[in-house]
């Protein structure tokens, strides 16, 4: 957990430094958006493979799938609602800027 956290912060930090000091090749800079989409698609595909290949996920889907779906939906719905209420209290607009 700690190693992973440090790795993510490290990689993100290196990227930010490259961005701040314009150290990337201009061509790479231009392609950044496309590269992000391609890596993202690949990542989601492999994540999907892991889910589909996971016997525990697939076999438990039919028995506890409904309960799990309800719990996940409840957590998501109320966390979105609570953040929405917090944003109203702090008077921030949809994009998170002060009104």
């Amino acid at each position: 957990m700690i190693f992973r956290l440090l790795l993510y912060i490290g990689v993100l930090g290196i990227g930010m430094l490259i961005g701040i000091y314009n150290m990337a090749h201009p061509k790479l800079d231009q392609a950044l958006g496309k590269l992000q989409i391609l890596t993202l698609i690949g990542l989601l595909f492999v994540m999907g493979i892991r889910l589909g290949a996971d016997k525990m996920v697939v076999s438990s889907l039919s028995t506890i799938g409904f309960q799990a779906f309800m719990l996940a939906f409840g957590s998501i719905a109320f966390s979105v609602l609570f953040v929405f209420l917090g944003r109203q209290i702090l008077k921030l607009d949809r994009r998170g800027r002060a009104k």
Binding site: G13, G15, M16, I20, Y21, D29
Partner: peptide, 18 residues
């Protein structure tokens, strides 16, 4: 996934840094 994630985080960091 680990390698892909690190690559993506690097790209996201570069975007944020800009």
């Amino acid at each position: 996934i680990d390698i892909g994630l690190c690559l993506l985080l690097l790209f996201v960091g570069m975007d944020i840094g800009k």
